[in-house]
Design a protein around this nucleic acid. Structure first.
Lengths: 174, 174
DNA sequence: ATCTTTTTCGTCCATTTGGTCCAGATAAAG
DNA sequence: CTTTATCTGGACCAAATGGACGAAAAAGAT
């Protein structure tokens, strides 16, 4: 019958692209019109795939939080080198993802955050990665250090900025 | 002449209160009407003190970033205990402040962040605090660990949430 | 009491927002 | 070429937004 478009696959693609827009502009600062334009479709087309702005945002966060940072572990390297590798892999997108996560978590009380499945999985995922390098024993400590390093780097202006992935168009402020 | 209202002092008070609203709702998610209502004045009165929404937001971030976490150092305690103290002092407001900072930094490229005076001072301030406890040598490392611990705690839902300080009114989503 | 200056407030306006709706385009199947 | 399910873009809506004014209120100074 009509265009052969795999709804699920396509909407996942859209969510990935939209995520960068959301993190660059914040949830409230993002309008469906602008995202649609950024994605190269009309607003109505976007609404065809996501019934609501919040649904789109949710899809984006799920996308980001379930991202795999796979096969970064190289047994030939030292723990420190492997941690540096992981750091380097996360650094470029860290600020962007944290920005999205903060929007996602905004207004949630600690209990709600603790109960959030996606968030829990994302943290567990990273913890497992670190544990794979330094062992369960030091995993928590090294994960803290990793996140702290990423955060401090961003706050010091040495990391990749939020706009990095989305530069092309628009030039609004805040 | 007119009402004896110290413009500077009063606007600083307003900025402090407004900061919690901004961090609870995000920059774009905050309207001048709502903040004004939250602060207990009319929109126009608010505009009298801050010419622009952005000016208000800037004042808020300056307020947050220049906050002093003074005299937390107790020589009688071990380094670890002092670090724990610092952690405990920062934990309740960490998420809220980071949320504001992410909004503040949004859209800024690394170079611009590195050049940002207020941001630089805030980081230097915290680094100095840590250095006062563990010495310059280990300051950077311990600061990373401190920030990582704060961040991980928040992401795990064990810390103080964003709403903590502003609960009373409003019940909007995201 | 009457100025005079700061602070406060209500109202207005153009623009943008999320979301709905429908006419037209698209393309596989007959 | 026609059918037919799917996609698309633009028009439209009520609500909210940032900001601009001008008028009102408050209160020190005379």
């Amino acid at each position: 019958m009509p265009k052969i478009v795999d709804h699920d696959v396509y909407s996942r693609q859209l969510a990935v692209q939209a995520a960068s827009y959301f993190s660059a502009h914040g949830y409230a600062g993002t309008s469906m019109r602008k995202v649609a334009a950024h994605l190269g479709l009309s607003k109505s087309a976007l609404y065809h795939y996501f019934p609501t702005k919040e649904a789109l945002f949710l899809a984006c966060t799920q996308m980001i939080m379930s991202g795999e940072e796979a096969d970064l572990l190289d047994p030939a390297l030292s723990d420190g080198q492997n941690l540096d590798r992981l750091y380097s892999a996360m650094a470029p997108t860290f600020a962007s993802e944290m920005s999205l996560v903060f929007d996602y978590l905004r207004g949630k009380e600690p209990a709600a955050i603790a109960a959030d499945e996606a968030m829990g999985l994302a943290v567990a995922n990273y913890r497992a990665l670190v544990a794979g390098i330094v062992g369960e024993e030091r995993a928590e400590e090294e994960l803290q250090r990793l996140l702290g390093r990423l955060l401090l780097t961003y706050l010091s202006g040495s990391g990749a900025g939020l706009e990095a992935e989305i530069r092309p168009e628009n030039g609004e402020a805040v």
